[in-house]
Write a protein that binds this DNA or RNA. Structure first.
Lengths: 244, 244
DNA sequence: GAGCGCTGTAACATTATCGTCACAAGTTGT
DNA sequence: ACAACTTGTGACGATAATGTTACAGCGCTC
């Protein structure tokens, strides 16, 4: 299922000048990759171990992370898992680097949440191709354009929401929820659909949780006549509408 | 006859009343799962080994098969393979249960053709969520196209109904009832048929209940000369018609 | 490590809707 | 016209769906 919310810092021209974090303990390979990335027009940031990587990802939300399978301390796969389970870093694209062309490694890397993998030794050309592919795959899904609906304005870029001109503050989930509704107005969505779109497909969350967030969103929109905008359709779900 | 409203209701979720085969040799887990499935509204059928499972799948084509990784005789993976290579059983959704969170197990299970996997111990909630996800993935999409009839308009997407342009509000059942009639106009349906189509097949409801809902629907459509549209055919049933 | 904001869930409160009944009203056949 | 039957109608608990509140956990900041 499509996930509209690739939250991370994503601009429309991600293919060039992307910031890429390289997590690799061998200095030689590290430098080789960094050099190559630089030539390709990207900005390379490096981390020597998983801890440092976590820090940097949280810090600067790179457009892509290259992770070596073998790392001192926390393994590459564990690192992927950590990144995937954190709300903020969940959607950062990841490419794994595996030393052996071993089937299991590849699959385990993918399974754990990586977007792609490359087996060493790899050619520079192959690396570039895959980076481009991953970035491109992610790019079209990010809707960073400001959205308007009635007297609501939501700007994913600046992460701001305003009602009738005056700005309000929303938590991350309420923000995504509102963004989803504003990009899909006038249409009824079941709790399950909302969970799939806003939270993500593979999440095990009580459907009633949606209700609570709807309420929170409503009360945040309170100043406006939000009850009119975000209405509940009994037996079906919720809907954002301009009509009465 | 086509039946739009088979089991699922048009807009809410689809995963009730599914028949699920549980292939598990440990009686305790077997029962636990069966009990849970029953509570979730599904019909649980069980098989203790792969042979029995094959038989039952071929026999009754369940909506979903839960297969334990470790089975006496033929392994779970082999069972999956057998099911996948058989024309008749090729498309039955499968969820694997793996005892250890071992990477290889998971991957081999998916690789061999399962739709999803769960590692034991798993929470009831997770099981339910995955079952729902798999069933939903397979569920046929109900047509969400707006329907028009005379001066009536019904839009499943926005869940709105309007008579001569002005919107009216209907409860879920009346909504489905009207949708059914609008998609099957000019034809008489008995109370039993209406129950089957709108409520679902195996419901135990008084036929006279249909009358009451017809009345409610009529009075909701009142503003228009609905008495003409939704007419009674004595001794036979009801019909939505444009003719006088 | 204490404080803080956010989240998911449970528990309770509140409605909306449902299914059924009893009876009224209408229809049919004789 | 009368009985036998079918359908309309309004009311009424029961129930399921939603609103609302409170709370405990978690990660993050300082």
């Amino acid at each position: 299922m499509e996930n509209i919310y690739r939250t991370p810092s994503a601009h429309s021209e991600v293919h060039l000048g992307a910031s890429i974090l390289v997590v690799e303990d061998e200095a030689a390979i590290q430098e080789l990759i960094a050099l190559n990335l630089g030539q390709a027009g990207h900005e390379a940031v490096s981390a020597m171990d998983a801890q440092e990587a976590l820090q940097r990802v949280r810090d600067s939300l790179p457009d892509l992370v290259l992770i070596d399978w073998m790392l001192p301390g926390m393994s590459g796969i564990d690192l992927v898992r950590r990144l995937r389970t954190n709300e903020r870093t969940r959607n950062v694209p990841i490419i794994m680097l595996t030393a052996r062309a071993d089937e299991i490694d590849k699959l385990a890397g993918l399974e754990s949440g990586a977007d792609d993998y490359i087996t060493k030794p790899f050619s520079i050309r192959e690396l570039n191709a895959r980076i481009k592919a991953v970035l491109r795959r992610r790019a079209p899904q990010m809707t960073e354009d400001p959205v308007n609906f009635k007297d609501l304005t939501l700007d994913p870029g600046t992460h701001r929401v305003s009602v009738k001109g005056s700005e309000i503050s929303l938590g991350p989930t309420e923000f995504k929820l509102l963004h989803f509704f504003m990009t899909h107005p006038e249409r009824v969505y079941s709790r399950t659909q909302i969970l799939d779109h806003v939270w993500g497909d593979h999440v095990f969350i009580e459907e009633r949780t949606v209700d609570v967030h709807i309420r929170r969103l409503r009360s945040a929109l309170e100043p406006s006549h939000s009850d009119q905008l975000l209405q509940t359709v009994r037996g079906a779900g919720y809907r954002l509408t301009a009509l009465p």
